[in-house]
Design a binder for these strands. Structure first.
Lengths: 160, 160
DNA sequence: TTTGACGTTGACGTTCGCGTAAGTTTGTGA
DNA sequence: TCACAAACTTACGCGAACGTCAACGTCAAA
């Protein structure tokens, strides 16, 4: 999220701490060819561009990309250099990816809704009330799952 | 997405095909205690509730939950049976999870935007034009990454 | 100059989420 | 009754994404 001066330099530990990964992780990404920090002696020096790539890698991971896929995205520049033979299939893969992500956004929204329903449910249970109709309606997803535990409420008057 | 009659029954292969997983996957989930189909002889019989749980498991997976985490969510009914000691920490974990998901929705949206930016870029390259200012602005995320390949465009007149 | 923090390169270990035999049983139609 | 598909259990295997030593180098502070 932060933008840093373009001539910034970072050590491996600085970036590892900032992004909450271990140095091992950054070396691993390098070994996969996803980042190519320069060296001062044997030590790695990371540029602002390296840092930006790391950000993108980690965001990619959070949304479920495999490292190899992320690498392909990062290699956009290589794709650009390539001719139509590289460009065209890449465009197709990108498009497919975007569709998947849009599906995934839906999944995330449903997951949020479901967890919130479960949460509301638990909160009412915590207050020892039988769940309100509204909560029960929102917890529909869980009704199917937890019928055994829901059924006692569904027909019976609250049995204190 | 489909709602089925509550007394429906399914074989392992039916559900495997419907959800595009292998039978092995469903047995694996069972082994982890995430579903508990009944048996007819040795053969598994899945109920509508089992089917609903599978749906939830798979959606959970798509948004990046680990199976153990999904199991916890599915165990809401067990949590419900438990007292405050179980309920309270569960509420906290659910809340934390929701926050993560909201963060993730942002990540997904950014990822979509970035891929679309890359896509627009590639499309213009495909037409052999130097990327328009608009596209370049949207591809900011990639500028930092691929400076080497972007710089040639930035100041120079298109050199065919 | 020794200590200690931080860096390096292998190289093997671990967890997760199943895949993949191998061999056995069970149910159904010819 | 035989065959064959489809289910079952057991168990080892695998790729991804690192974790975790081991063994070594380097530099600043004490």
């Amino acid at each position: 999220m932060q933008t840093v001066a373009p001539d910034s330099e970072f050590t491996i530990r600085e970036l590892a701490q900032e992004f909450d990964v271990t140095p091992r992780t950054l070396r691993f990404y390098e070994q996969k060819g996803m980042i190519t920090p320069t060296r001062r002696g044997a030590a790695r020096i990371y540029s602002a561009a390296d840092r930006a790539r790391i950000e993108l890698i980690l965001r990619g991971k959070r949304v479920g990309f495999a490292l190899d896929e992320i690498k392909e995205i990062l290699d956009l520049e290589a794709i650009n250099r390539g001719g139509r033979e590289r460009l065209v299939p890449a465009i197709e893969r990108f498009t497919a990816r975007i569709n998947l992500l849009e599906q995934q956004r839906e999944d995330v929204e449903r997951a949020i809704a479901e967890l919130q329903a479960g949460l509301a449910w638990m909160r009412e249970r915590l207050e020892d009330r039988t769940p309100s109709d509204d909560v029960r309606r929102r917890a529909r997803a869980f009704e199917a799952l937890a019928q055994a535990s829901l059924d006692p409420w569904s027909g019976a008057p609250s049995a204190g």
